[in-house]
């Protein structure tokens, strides 16, 4: 079942051109629209929100970029556009987002992050099944992001969501699926970790950053580190999530060191996995290899060391990554 559908849309907003042959989002899923600044993400979202002629026309809950702080007290502006039931939900969300003490203050005296949370509560409380969020975590401080992301995901359960971001962590925290948009066109679409892990071409690799994003659950925690169980392997990374909670590990392909053969533990790296090379390709000045160590792991090498190591498809290699190069984020 499809909840959102755009077909044959061409928008030209004086320089910014967005061209969509077909764009659909399955009911109940969360799609992240990822891309650099000016790529057309917001334009596509506004098409879905029905704010640009030719777009989607159904009802939706829509959080625009940089939410406007309405005149008046925060508690009053929280009610805008909401009926009684939605207003009650909004008040619960305000509490969950930790801004319930601000409702008596004038909205314009609030900080950017506080305004953003207020606007989020107002949008997420809406009854519509389709939710469109433009950079929902943009003004939220790094320390509060996991909590806010958790609230967002909780309210999106069973709803169809499209979330715009240019931030990697935000994409991983909020999306199931991801579409990368460059110069007004959707260039790659797939689940978040496969797009981050295996960008389709060098231009996409430059946009998403060549790297790894794999989901699992937290198996252990100590001294600011988490061990995340990915099924076949476990990964140590920087994180302080409770044991058992769902998490994703993020690390760049350039942080992975590659050793020929099946070593035990080369050097001081906490993460060390043996596997076979699955894929080799040139990405500009570097060589990108994908090694199957139970899960596919992307590593970047200089052409010189790739040659020295004899990297080719099927070769046995050992990968090592320092725990300090890995970020553990909630999912």
């Amino acid at each position: 079942m499809t909840d959102l559908l755009l077909r044959d849309v061409l928008v030209d907003l004086g320089g910014l051109r967005v061209e969509i042959d077909r764009f659909e989002v399955a009911a109940g899923s969360r799609l992240v629209l990822f891309g650099p600044n000016g790529a057309g993400k917001t334009t596509l979202l506004r098409l879905l929100a029905g704010r640009i002629p030719g777009g989607h026309t159904g009802a939706c809950a829509y959080l625009p970029q940089r939410p406007w702080a309405f005149r008046g007290r925060a508690g009053r502006t929280l009610r805008l556009g909401l009926d009684g039931a939605a207003h009650a939900r909004a008040k619960d969300l305000v509490a969950a987002l930790g801004v319930e003490d601000l409702l008596d203050r004038p909205t314009r005296s609030l900080s950017g992050g506080e305004r953003q949370r207020l606007a989020l509560a107002r949008v997420l409380a809406r009854p519509e099944d389709v939710v469109l969020l433009d950079e929902p975590l943009a003004a939220i401080g790094a320390a509060d992001r996991p909590r806010v992301a958790g609230v967002i995901i909780g309210t999106l359960a069973g709803r169809t969501a499209v979330i715009v971001t240019h931030d990697r962590d935000e994409a991983v925290m909020l999306g199931d699926e991801m579409a990368v948009i460059i110069d007004g066109r959707i260039r790659q679409r797939g689940d978040v970790r496969s797009v981050f892990g295996l960008p389709a071409d060098t231009e996409l690799a430059a946009v998403v950053g060549v790297g790894n994003a794999v989901s699992g659950s937290v198996a252990a925690g100590e001294d600011g580190l988490n061990e995340v169980d990915l099924g076949e392997i476990t990964v140590w990374g920087m994180g302080e999530l409770p044991v058992g909670s769902p998490a994703a590990v993020l690390f760049g392909g350039e942080t992975v060191t590659v050793h020929a053969g099946r070593h035990g533990s080369p050097g001081s790296a906490r993460n060390c996995w043996a596997g076979r090379v699955d894929r080799v390709r040139d990405v500009g000045r570097l060589v990108e290899i994908v090694v199957d160590v139970g899960v596919p792991v992307v590593a970047l090498l200089t052409p010189g060391s790739a040659e020295e190591l004899g990297v080719r498809i099927g070769a046995h290699v050992t990968l090592a990554v320092k725990a300090t190069a890995v970020r553990v984020v909630p999912r």
């Binding site: 506004r46 929100a49 704010r51 009802a59 809950a61 829509y62 959080l63 625009p64 970029q65 940089r66 939410p67 406007w68 309405f70 805008l80 556009g81 606007a119 949008v123 809406r126 519509e128």
Partner: peptide, 14 residues
């Protein structure tokens, strides 16, 4: 009014 304000007003579903 900044465009952001009108965009937000429209997003209120009124």
């Amino acid at each position: 009014l900044p465009p952001d304000a009108l965009e937000q007003v429209h997003a209120l579903g009124l």
